[in-house]
């Protein structure tokens, strides 16, 4: 397998958010600013990477019929670890992301990588896949967060470039859908070229 391709596929070609359309719930819910999007992205990336590693290591030990419960337990454990570590060492971000951290458990993107990739591939490929896809997810969330923050708060990564409020709708749920829609359109256009 071409590992370079395996690594880069997550950014545009098979981007989890823009192309596969997985994990849209946190993508919409947490991206009120670029920093929040990035935090959520990295948290998810850690979970994807670790669960990919473990799933790939135990793929032959786990019988087929109970593989999904096993994957879920593994994913849930890593999510809880992320949750606890964030609460302890990054309380501000943890508070911002709130409920969405525990919800990584049900992010089908994570289970999707475990089921569709890690359970069928070698450890090395799974690590590269997890990192690439995780970075792709982080990239997508950061981009969406940045777009919403620029339009909604006149700021980027917390740096205000115009005084006052922006278009508040982008901080709220409808703006998340609008911004995500246009980013998906853009990704599709890039993919076609």
């Amino acid at each position: 397998m071409d590992q370079a391709k395996n690594f880069t596929k997550g950014f545009i070609r098979e981007n989890p958010v823009f192309i596969l359309m997985l994990g849209l719930c946190p993508a919409l819910g947490t991206t009120t600013s670029a920093f929040n999007g990035m935090g959520m992205g990295f948290a998810t990336m850690f979970v994807v990477l670790m669960s990919n590693i473990v799933v790939s290591l135990i793929k032959n030990f786990v019988p087929n019929k109970v593989r999904i419960p096993c994957y879920i337990v593994i994913i849930a454990s890593f999510v809880t670890i992320v949750d606890l570590v964030m609460a302890g060492f990054m309380p501000a971000l943890h508070e911002q992301l709130g409920l969405f951290i525990p919800l990584i458990v049900v992010n089908c993107f994570v289970l999707g990588r475990a089921e569709a990739f890690a359970s069928k591939n070698t450890l090395l490929s799974s690590v590269i896949d997890g990192t690439g896809m995780g970075l792709g997810f982080t990239f997508a969330l950061t981009l969406l967060g940045a777009a919403r923050e620029i339009l909604g708060s006149n700021a980027i990564f917390g740096l205000q470039f115009i005084e006052g409020d922006g278009m508040l709708v982008f901080i709220l749920a409808p703006g998340a859908f609008i911004a995500l829609g246009y980013l998906i359109a853009l990704a599709n256009k890039l993919n076609k070229q």
Partner: peptide
């Protein structure tokens, strides 16, 4: 190592091991 069959014993063993390791690390 070949993939293990989905026998009752194998399933219980796999689930038990994974949950034990998971809860211990948590």
């Amino acid at each position: 190592m070949a993939k293990r069959e989905s026998t009752f014993f194998n399933m219980v063993l796999a689930l038990l091991t994974i949950t034990l390791v998971a809860s211990a690390s948590l």
